[in-house]
């Protein structure tokens, strides 16, 4: 693959006090790619995603956005963040704003769109996640799955170069998980660059270009979905996947 590298982490360490959460992670995501990260809880997945989203600086190592060392060059973090869509595990909608207003806020304030432009854009995004009829609903009136879809629409409204999703379905029951996964699959097929932490193996199998297994703060191995699922090389990945797929 020769397409442009959107995000790249080089030798990323994150240390909180005594705790080494990440211990030298190298990762890159190219334009159009869908990459999935799996791994046991506490392995540093969320921390890695927050670092790649420039929401937290690494203790050591470099994070490159489209080839530029963001911290090294002292680039404007708010500006870089606006080009990276982020969807969190917790529903993080602004609770005093309707679904439509949630999506409009970024384009209005950060991209400097007029109210009318932002509104048009927000409608397009709502359509993308199949929630037009819920435009005027407040987050409290939406299901967890609908909230996550609005959160995806909100992130996409910024027209980001990449979408980072941190276990977006971990707090949802099976039915709601499915509707969010379906939206994510559609986005992957549209060619939107995505890095997803998830344990939805069917999703990974369907659309991921690569699955990376992270454990103990290190990426143990990366491989194409079928290969990773059927034939993991490291013993840890083997055990983890067996448990995940319910084969134990």
């Amino acid at each position: 693959m020769s397409s442009e590298t959107i995000l790249e982490g080089q030798g990323i360490w994150k240390i909180y006090g005594e705790l080494e959460v990440l211990r030298g992670v190298d990762i890159d995501i190219r334009r159009g790619q869908t990459k999935v990260i799996i791994g046991p809880s506490g392995s540093g997945k969320s921390t890695l995603l927050r670092i790649l989203g420039f929401l937290e600086p690494p203790t050591r190592g470099r994070v490159l956005f489209r080839g530029r060392d963001v911290y090294g060059e002292g680039l404007d973090l708010a500006k870089i963040r606006s080009k990276i869509g982020f969807v969190f595990q917790q529903p993080s909608l602004f609770r005093h704003l309707t679904a439509l207003e949630n999506i409009k806020l970024g384009p209005r304030l950060v991209l400097g769109m007029s109210d009318r432009e932002a509104e048009k854009r927000a409608w397009e995004m709502l359509k993308l996640v199949h929630l037009e009829e819920f435009a005027d609903y407040y987050p409290a009136q939406l299901s967890g799955g609908q909230q996550q879809r609005v959160a995806i629409a909100r992130a996409l409204a910024m027209n980001p170069d990449i979408l980072l999703l941190d276990e977006p379905t971990a707090n949802l029951d099976i039915e709601l998980t499915w509707e969010v996964i379906e939206v994510m699959e559609e986005l992957a097929r549209k060619g939107i660059t995505m890095l997803v932490v998830t344990h939805e193996i069917p999703f990974a199998r369907e659309v991921a270009d690569e699955i990376c297994f992270i454990s103990d703060g290190v990426i143990q191995e990366c491989n194409e979905p079928e290969e990773m699922i059927k034939n993991p090389k490291t013993p840890r990945a083997r055990v983890f996947l067996k448990r995940l797929l319910g084969e134990v």
Partner: peptide, 14 residues
């Protein structure tokens, strides 16, 4: 809630 602040930061708000 903190996650709203984080989400706002992720959108690029100052």
């Amino acid at each position: 809630p903190r996650d709203q602040l984080l989400a706002a930061r992720a959108l690029g708000l100052t």
